[in-house]
Amino acid sequence: MSAKILSLFILNVFTANFILFRFLGMCPFIGVSRQKRPAFFMSLAVIFVMVFSSVITWFLYNYVLLPYHLEYMRTVAFILVIASAVQMIDMVMLKTMPALHRTLGIYLPLITTNCAVLGVTVLNIDMFVNGGRPVPGGFWLAVLQGLFAGLGFMLAMMIMSGIRERLDVVDLPESVKGIPIAFIVASLLSLSFMAFNGL
């Protein structure tokens, strides 16, 4: 089991990193990676929502959609769950952790349309539900995948924002400033991370 968890970790953080290789969550990756602080808090919020939605969608799929043969409702159901989960987290956080809410608050609504969150929940079902039945330990694997995918997101976000902060003080050519150079850097980063293939 621990070997399985380690390989799941390596898969989600390095070899199939959500941003660099699976291209999930590109919009926030490009949009919120200008500076390190926002990038960090955005990633925290994403980790939080990913784990939370992994838990809820797991129960929803295996105990509601599957028994009633509503698998085709997956997309609609999941996106609704994620949207309301985000809304709920937003409200709970506002009441109980106002300081944290001030820093994370503005990112929470953005996460609803972060395809990485919907992506990880759909991926959980694809990977850990086999022929209408969850694989052994599937629930925990799904939750861990939510966590690891979030960590992979955070790794890419932090590297990217560190580099972009540095590029801000460099006299880049006018036509590459901003988003274009971010893509070039992401490409080179993805090129370097190919080293982890086969780990």
Binding site: M158, I159, G162, I163, E165, R166, L188, L189, L191, S192, F193, M194, A195, F196, N197, G198, L199
Partner: peptide, 25 residues
Amino acid sequence: ILRLWGGLPEGVSYSILIMNAFVPY
């Protein structure tokens, strides 16, 4: 790590590239 457990026999150039990305930090 790449030499002992990775898919490729050698990892020097990749490891320098990856560390390049952490230089701002």
